[in-house]
């Protein structure tokens, strides 16, 4: 099931940071990984990935470089030290949020499962 667009809006940045902390990726690979790992729950319109990456790059969270694969030029994205610390901070915030939501919705979620 796809997560509501408004609900998933704030998650894209942390997902991208997390994926790039594992390895450098280009845009197409990022979209595929995002869909695969979240079982398509966190898919976004593919075209809006790049503006998000560009804004993150302007904030120095990520960096990019060009490489040629099979004769095709591609821009790969890599996590910066600043991005790594932002990711750690965002993860902590998410832990707090998830714990709080579990406390509030825990019983209800338990009943459903």
């Amino acid at each position: 099931m796809r997560v509501n667009k408004e609900l998933s809006k704030g998650t894209h940045e942390i997902i991208i940071l997390e994926l790039l902390s594992r390895k450098d990726m280009h845009g197409y690979e990022l979209v595929q990984e995002m869909e695969l790992l979240s079982d398509k729950a966190f898919s976004m319109s593919q075209g809006s990935l790049y503006p998000l990456l560009h804004v993150m790059e302007s904030k120095r969270y990520i960096d990019s470089y060009e490489e040629t694969v099979n004769g095709r030029k591609r821009r790969c994205y890599t996590l910066t030290d600043k991005g790594r610390s932002v990711l750690a901070e965002k993860k902590n915030q998410w832990k707090v949020l998830v714990n709080a939501m579990e406390r509030i919705l825990g019983r209800e979620l338990g009943e459903q499962s």
Binding site: H26, G27, V31, G47, Y50, H54, K73, R74, R75
Partner: peptide
């Protein structure tokens, strides 16, 4: 230029 190259590739 940059955005066009990335979008076209994608």
């Amino acid at each position: 230029r940059r955005a066009k190259a990335e979008l076209m590739n994608h």
